[in-house]
Design a protein around this nucleic acid. Structure first.
Lengths: 166, 166
DNA sequence: GCCCATTTGTTCGTATGTATA
DNA sequence: TTATACATACGAACAAATGGG
């Protein structure tokens, strides 16, 4: 397996980093090599590194902290094994709604802080959902629709999809 | 003074284009202005345009055809609300945002502002997940598994299914 | 069939702002 | 203060696809 793999460089880099996370070479909580190091190590531009990190972040696998580093948040296996979070999302949303009700103008920072924790939790749930989605795509045969086909005949059918009235 | 709207330029451009799609100014099937035209029209760099288009593509709103153009694939309404449970969450996030608006002067404004940004981000994520889920399940012909077996150590159902009745 | 301009998608290099240490 | 790091932004270039001449 010597020659050039197929696909854009940023996808290949994302695949490689994802594999390293899955294999444990990059453990959860650990920091990825800095962007400049990745540029040197892989002989690519900042754009390639940037897009690769972006993919992983959108998959919920890593998160960046300005001034510090990009850290591993979870492995793909962990994400997919954490189970369906749609109901958890709903529950979390309801908790926020309730806390917001009790957050009267006089209420101080404690309530706001609690709210922030809840939102962080929700964000994680979204990330998990995303990871599950990725696995689902793989199971159906297609990788992940970053480069998406039209999937729709050219003629806009103008399906007036009546939706929930506001 | 009186300039910076708030947030990165590429997100603002994505928001503007999304609004134009929603309002019908950019209809389904129509082509977006070319990247170079968007650069000139908005006075931004190619990077900003690129990232904005990328967001819309990941939301399932547009798709690009090299050599031709980027075409509108669906409206946010079509892509976002299509009888899925997630659309209730989307509406919920909107309500929370409104409540945060009316709540601002009371408690620490910075904290509240931060929360608002977080929620906006969450909403975007949910929108992306919705579009992808809809497309995926439509492709395999399966209905979306709303009620899934727990399989977690969570035996306690007691799940208040409703989402914040209005 | 062949050139050529346009467009998307990708890649390169650099610069700036802000956060961390 | 200095140095590093992420996130964003700028400008330029190239390949591949499309379509017109």
């Amino acid at each position: 397996m010597a020659e050039v793999q197929e696909g854009p460089a940023y996808k290949r880099l994302a695949d490689e980093l994802r594999s390293q996370i899955a294999s444990g070479k990059l453990q959860v909580g650990a920091a990825l090599p800095s962007a400049s190091k990745l540029v040197k190590a892989h002989g690519v531009s900042t754009t390639v590194v940037r897009d690769a990190i972006r993919i992983l972040r959108e998959e919920g696998l890593v998160y960046g902290q300005p001034g510090k580093a990009v850290f591993v948040r979870a492995t793909p296996a962990e994400s997919t094994s954490e189970r369906l979070t749609l109901d958890e999302l709903t529950e979390g949303f309801e908790r926020i709604q309730q806390q917001l009700d009790t957050l009267a103008p006089g209420a101080g920072r404690d309530a706001v802080e609690e709210l922030r924790v809840e939102i962080a939790d929700l964000r994680r749930s979204v990330a998990v959902l995303q990871a599950q989605l990725i696995e689902l795509y793989g199971r159906v045969g297609q990788p992940y629709p970053r480069d998406k086909a039209p999937l729709k005949s050219d003629n806009g059918p103008a399906r007036p999809r009546r939706v929930v009235g506001s």
